[in-house]
Design a protein around this nucleic acid. Structure first.
Lengths: 115, 115
DNA sequence: CCAATTGTACGACGATCATCGTAGTTTGAC
DNA sequence: GTCAAACTACGATGATCGTCGTACAATTGG
């Protein structure tokens, strides 16, 4: 088809994003790894699901990305056979200023200690 | 007995506190309520478990306090028949600067919006 | 010693979770 | 039209979670 893909994914609106859901989404090592990766990207690029190597099966990877999307942490859009993922930094920063950076900094600090 | 109580509770050392565990502990509304309450206290006072009215049974309350303690978010010490709870702000701020305040601010922001 | 207060231990319950494999769908490239 | 790549859907499984009630333990105050 030449028309745009009809495969559209459901994202919570900014106002629908819940702190508890975000914290829960970030409390898993795999998902934290995804967020860390996406946060390290410059600009609006984003990355496909397969660009981030997680030590779990493909189904599990899909699952983690969905949890992140449904919590409002990332947005996902199909592009060809790939699905591009972008951190919803604008929304998160608007809702919870400093939260995402705080978590990322905490993650960096913990890793630096050898965690 | 006049000797100090032998009822001692296990707390993770500062270096043992894990970010994922902290985030998980904070991702529950009841536990967030406890942390919010303790954060609102002045000085080193702390509060007994029963001082914080949670809309769950006593057993469940005990459970939530334990999760917070085992994650390193609070410290608990017996004092008579009561158990006093204190936020481990010093440890958390040292390990993850800005994280606790970020979460508390996010919680306040969400509540202000009517969440 | 007795009673009241405060919190625990121990199942138990249904719900959610992280994980997997297999079989499928959608797309882009040839 | 075929084929490979990328991701999904759908169970299934074992673990953990939040919740409860009941029964118990430790402490303080009369």
């Amino acid at each position: 088809m030449s028309t745009a893909s009809t495969r559209v994914l459901d994202h919570p609106e900014r106002e629908e994003i819940r702190l508890e859901a975000v914290l829960h989404a970030l409390s898993d090592p795999m998902r934290l790894q995804v967020v860390r990766f996406l946060a390290g990207l410059s600009g609006e690029e984003g990355a496909s699901c397969s660009a981030i190597e997680l030590a779990v099966s493909k189904s599990t990877t899909t699952h983690h990305f969905r949890v992140l999307r449904e919590a409002g942490v990332i947005s996902q859009v199909y592009r060809g056979t790939a699905k591009m993922n972008v951190l919803r930094r604008g929304d998160l920063d608007a809702l919870f200023p400093g939260l995402l950076d705080g978590v990322l900094a905490a993650d960096t600090a913990q890793r630096r200690r050898g965690g």
